[in-house]
């Protein structure tokens, strides 16, 4: 079977194709322009994952929202759940960039971290 994907690794947007056998083992990946593209295709075929960026409530600063991201990718199916979990999070300024705002979100082993510093205001 051949499956097609569009690479989201960079703005090039390579059109990727993955052949697998009936057991699900990947036979060939085509259409990539870099190593990351090849890896993405294989990953997307068996276990699609995404990084999540969103904001969480921020207290004690001029800003009221703190931008955050997952420190690594999480399963694509969990993206909305990650955001839902973050709705309960409140962070108090000051915040450092990279500071963990939620450990091991939904048991994925991935932390959610601040993507900017905010001074107490």
């Amino acid at each position: 079977m051949t499956a097609s994907y569009l690479c989201i690794g960079c703005p090039l947007g390579c059109r990727l194709e993955v052949d697998d056998d009936p057991g699900g083992d990947i036979l060939e990946v085509r259409g990539f322009s870099c190593r990351k593209g090849k890896e993405f295709a294989a990953q997307e075929h068996v276990d699609p994952r995404r990084s999540v960026t969103t904001t969480v409530a921020l207290l004690g600063a001029d800003l009221c929202r703190l931008p955050v991201k997952t420190a690594a990718t999480v399963p694509k199916a969990l993206v909305r759940d990650v955001c839902r979990a973050l709705r309960a999070v409140r962070v108090i300024a000051p915040v450092q960039a990279g500071q963990v705002v939620l450990h091991d979100v939904l048991g994925t082993g991935v932390d959610v971290v601040a993507t900017r510093a905010v001074a107490a205001g």
Binding site: Y5, C10, P11
Partner: peptide, 11 residues
Amino acid sequence: LSRNIVQCLHD
């Protein structure tokens, strides 16, 4: 960009 069609709409 096509990557945004995929990760923002298709997903």
